[in-house]
């Protein structure tokens, strides 16, 4: 079982990112579940979403305590949330950032999703869309195949810029 925790802020598309990742995993022939933690959040508050991927049907509904991968869509949440909490030894971090950061020695992957979204003019109500490009980065990391990532994006969004943004993230991911 591969477990992912996504940190973002309400309205940034963390829930959709989780859904896209789960759909891409299903397109890879795997089983997946995706769910947000629902509290009394409002737009802009830090939120968490979870994804489980496995080769067998998934029977667990409880929250993910020990993720294999932490995705940080908005680095500013790191000021208020310990995003590394429970991350397994050897677990990986994917950061939406322009520059590398030290994440307490965990293998960290960096990509400027915000920059890519702005470049591709992928915006909703003035906010850059991060949830489709992040799929490209995840494909590069080997979590899902790029083919399935693109398939998931196309199934959910008709605008082709979402796929080009994912392709850009695939190319620009820094290990």
């Amino acid at each position: 079982m591969f477990e992912v925790r996504i940190h973002s802020r309400g309205g940034q598309g963390g829930v959709t990112a989780a859904r896209l990742l789960a759909l891409a995993a299903v397109r890879d022939g795997k089983y997946a579940t995706a769910f947000p933690f629902y509290g009394a959040e409002r737009r802009g508050a830090p939120v968490v979403s979870f994804v489980r991927i496995d080769d067998a049907p998934i029977r667990i509904s409880s929250q993910i305590k020990k993720p294999d991968l932490v995705i940080v869509l908005d680095p500013s949440v790191m000021d208020v949330v310990d995003v590394l909490q429970g991350l397994k030894p050897g677990g990986r971090v994917l950061l939406n950032a322009r520059e590398r950061r030290d994440m307490k020695g965990y293998p960290t992957f960096t990509v400027d999703l915000t920059g890519i979204a702005l470049r591709e003019k992928l915006e909703v109500a003035g906010s850059p869309i991060l949830n489709t490009p992040v799929l490209g980065a995840l494909a590069k990391m080997g979590i899902v195949t790029m083919e399935s990532a693109k398939s998931a994006i196309t199934e959910m969004f008709s605008d082709p810029r979402n796929v080009s943004a994912a392709e850009a993230a695939y190319r620009e991911l820094v290990a």
Binding site: A22, L23, A32, A34, Y38, S61
Partner: peptide, 12 residues
């Protein structure tokens, strides 16, 4: 169906 645990959880 369980609130959130199924209503808002995405599965195949």
């Amino acid at each position: 169906l369980d609130g959130f645990l199924l209503s808002h959880t995405m599965q195949p």
